[in-house]
Design a protein around this nucleic acid. Structure first.
Lengths: 189, 189
DNA sequence: CAAACCATTTATCATTTGGTAAAAACTAAT
DNA sequence: ATTAGTTTTTACCAAATGATAAATGGTTTG
C-alpha cells in the first residue's frame, strides 16, 4: 500500500486524510496466471495498481495471431483508461502473465474519489500521460530496430522480466516469431 | 482559426470571451520545408497548431540514421509537450516536411491562458492524452506487421500524405529502407 | 538548353526472418 | 519414475529485407 501512495504522491500533493480516503476505497484483487483483468468486448470494471505480478495488453490481429502490445509490472497502474472512464467495451485484453496481486477501484469508487478529492483528476491525468509517454518511448523504437536490438532494449527496459514470463509473449511483443527469438537468444550467448 | 477553436471545443466548453482571449494570444508562424519547429538540444519555444502543412517528429539513432517517429498534419496540435511545459531541452526534432503555416503560443502566453481560463489545463490535458493514444494506436501495430501491411495501414491512416512528402521519410516511419519501400510499392501496383 | 542536384527506382547479392516440422527440455500430475 | 502436456530450441528451406551500387527521372539554376 505504501508503494501505491508513494506512486501517487509523485504527481501531486495529498494530505493524510486524503490518502486515507483513497486507500479506503481500494480493494484487493488476485489473478491467476492467464486470467483476464479486462477483456475485448467487455466494459473494463477496474482501474488497478499492481502489487505483485506482471500483466500484458494484447489483442488478436486479422490472422488470429496473439499480439502483445506491452507489459506492466509491479508498482504501476493497469487500466484501459479511456474505455474505463467512458464505460464502453474494450477492444483489447489485459491478461495476467504471472499470478498477480493488485489494488483495484471500481468505477463508482473511482468517481467518488474524483468528486471528493480536489485535484484528483489532475493527478490521474498526469499519471496517464506519463504512462502513455513511457509506452511510446518504449514501443516506437522497435519499429526501426532489427530483432536483436529489440531484444537487447527489452532486457534493458524490463530487467528481470525475461525470466518471469513465457518467451512467446516476449517474441510477440518484439514483433518476431518465437523461432526467430530463440535463434537470436542463441546467437547472443 | 475556426478549425482551431472547433478542435479545442471538442474537449471542453468555452464561451466566446474565453475563445477570444485564447485566439488573441495566438501568433502565426510560417516554416519552409525542412526547417525545424523544435530541435534536439534546445528548449521548445512553442505549442503549435497546424493550419497548413505537415511536420514530422524525428531523431537520429546510434547509427546516425534519421528516424521518423510520426507525422502530424493539418488541424492538429504539434508540440514536444513535456519538454515545452517543463522548459527543458528536447531530445528529438520536429521538422517541417512541407511548407507550413501554423498558430503558435509562447510559453508565457500559454501559461497566461492557463492562469486566466478555468478548465484550460483540463482541456489541454485531454487533448494531449488524445494525441498520445492516437500515436500509440498508429505506431504500435507497425512492430508486428510486415512491410507491405505497414504501408497499407499508413495509406489508410494518412490518406493523401503519400503524395505530399518525400518517400524517404515514409520509409523511415515504416522502419524499412527506401529501397525496400520502393520495391514494395512496385509489387502493389 | 545544359548542368548540377536531389529523389526515386532497379539490380544484385548477402543477411535476416518467416513457415513448417520435429526434437529436446521442462512441468505438473499420477 | 512415468506419462502427458507444455514450452523452448533446432533444423531446413522459402521469402522478405538490408546493403551497396548504379541507373533513371525530375527539378532547379545558370
Amino acid at each position: 500500500m505504501k508503494e501505491f501512495i508513494d506512486y501517487i504522491l509523485q504527481f501531486g500533493n495529498l494530505n493524510k486524510q486524503q490518502t486515507d480516503f483513497i486507500t479506503s476505497k481500494a480493494k484487493t484483487l488476485e489473478l491467476h496466471k492467464d486470467e483476464y483483468f479486462s477483456e475485448a468486448g467487455k466494459i473494463p470494471r477496474y482501474v488497478g495498481f499492481i502489487i505483485e505480478g506482471v500483466v500484458r495488453f494484447c489483442y488478436y490481429n486479422n490472422k488470429g495471431e496473439d499480439i502483445t502490445q506491452y507489459f506492466v509490472d509491479e508498482n504501476n497502474f493497469v487500466s484501459d483508461q479511456q474505455r474505463f472512464e467512458a464505460q464502453v467495451v474494450a477492444s483489447e485484453y489485459i491478461q495476467a502473465v504471472t499470478d498477480c496481486k493488485m489494488l483495484v477501484f471500481s468505477k463508482k469508487d473511482w468517481d467518488e474519489i474524483g468528486n471528493t478529492i480536489l485535484g484528483w483528476d489532475n493527478i490521474t491525468g498526469l499519471i496517464l500521460k506519463n504512462c502513455l509517454l513511457k509506452t511510446i518511448e518504449r514501443r516506437s523504437p522497435l519499429v526501426s530496430e532489427d530483432a536483436t536490438t529489440r531484444y537487447l532494449s527489452f532486457i534493458e527496459q524490463f530487467p528481470g522480466l525475461v525470466n518471469r514470463i513465457p518467451l512467446s509473449h516476449i517474441a510477440s511483443y518484439l514483433g518476431i516469431t518465437q523461432q526467430s527469438f530463440s535463434r537470436i537468444r542463441k546467437n547472443i550467448r
